[in-house]
Simulated assay, not measured.
Amino acid sequence: MSRMSRPNEAEVEWKPRTTLGMMVASGKINSMEQIFENGMRIQESEIVKHLLPDIKTQVVSVEIVQKQTDAGELTRFNALVAIGNESGWFGIGKGKASQMRNAIDKATNASYLNVIPVKLGCGSWECRCHQAHSVPFKVQGRGGSVKIELIPGPRGLGIVAGENIRNLLKLAGLKDCWSRSYGSTNTMSSTAKAIFNALRSTFVTG
Score class of each variant (00 low, 15 high):
Cys177Met: 04
Ala198Asp: 01
Phe137Gln: 13
Val160Ala: 03
Ser87Ile: 00
Pro154Phe: 06
Lys67Asp: 13
Ser5Ile: 10
Ala172Thr: 09
Gly158His: 04
Phe36Gln: 08
Tyr112Cys: 12
Ala194Phe: 10
Val115Ser: 02
Gly95Asp: 02
Leu168Gly: 00
Gln58Leu: 13
Gly158Asn: 06
Ile159Glu: 02
Arg166Asp: 13
Lys170Met: 14
Gly121Met: 13
Val139His: 03
Glu63Gln: 14
Thr108Ser: 01
Ala198Ser: 07
Ala97His: 14
Ile195Pro: 02
Lys138Asp: 09
Phe196Ser: 05
Lys147Gly: 03
Cys177Phe: 05
Tyr182Ser: 15
Met1Asn: 03
Ala97Leu: 11
Gly153Gln: 07
Gly156Met: 02
Gly39Ala: 08
Ile148Asn: 12
Val139Pro: 09
Thr19Phe: 07
Thr108Tyr: 03
Cys129Asn: 11
Ala172Arg: 11
Arg76Ala: 07
Gly91Pro: 03
Gly88Trp: 05
Thr18Asn: 14
Ser45His: 05
Tyr112Val: 00
Val48Lys: 05
Val81Tyr: 04
Trp89Leu: 14
Ser190Val: 01
Ala103Leu: 15
Arg180Pro: 03
Ala103Arg: 15
Val81Ala: 08
Glu44Ala: 10
Val115Gln: 03
Leu80Asn: 08
Gly88Glu: 06
Gly93Ala: 01
Ala110Met: 15
Thr191Val: 11
Ile64Met: 09
Asn164Ser: 13
Val12Asp: 11
Ser181Thr: 15
Ile165Glu: 14
Leu120Glu: 08
Lys175Met: 11
Gly141Asp: 09
Thr202Leu: 09
Ala103Trp: 15
Lys175Gln: 06
Ala103Glu: 15
Ile151Met: 05
Trp89Glu: 13
Phe77Gln: 11
Arg6Trp: 02
Val65Pro: 02
Gly27Lys: 09
Leu169Gly: 06
Glu11Gly: 05
Ser145Arg: 11
Glu11Ser: 13
Asn114Gln: 11
Arg166Ile: 09
Arg3Glu: 06
Ser31Gly: 05
Gly206Ile: 00
Asn164Thr: 12
Val139Thr: 14
Ser189Asp: 15
Gly93His: 00
Asp70Ile: 08
Glu73Ala: 11
Asp70Arg: 15
Thr108Lys: 01
His50Ser: 09
Glu37Ile: 12
Leu113Gly: 08
Glu9Gln: 07
Ile35Glu: 01
Thr69Ala: 11
Thr202Val: 04
Thr191Tyr: 03
Val59Phe: 04
Pro152Ala: 10
Ile29Phe: 10
Thr108Gly: 03
Asp176Gln: 03
Ser26His: 01
Ser145Lys: 07
Glu126Ala: 12
Val160Ile: 12
Glu46Ser: 08
Gly123Asp: 13
Met40Ser: 06
Asp70Val: 10
Val24Asn: 06
Val139Leu: 07
Lys96Gly: 01
Glu63Met: 10
Met40Asp: 03
Val60Gly: 01
Ile159Thr: 02
Thr18His: 13
Leu199Gln: 00
Phe36Arg: 12
Gly206Lys: 05
Pro136Cys: 10
Gly183Gln: 10
Ala107Gln: 08
Thr185Arg: 07
Leu120Asn: 12
Glu44Arg: 12
Val204Pro: 01
Asn78Pro: 00
Thr69Lys: 14
Lys175Asp: 02
Lys106Pro: 01
Ser2Tyr: 06
Gly93Lys: 00
Gly144Pro: 04
Thr185His: 05
Gln34Asn: 07
Val12Phe: 11
Thr57Val: 10
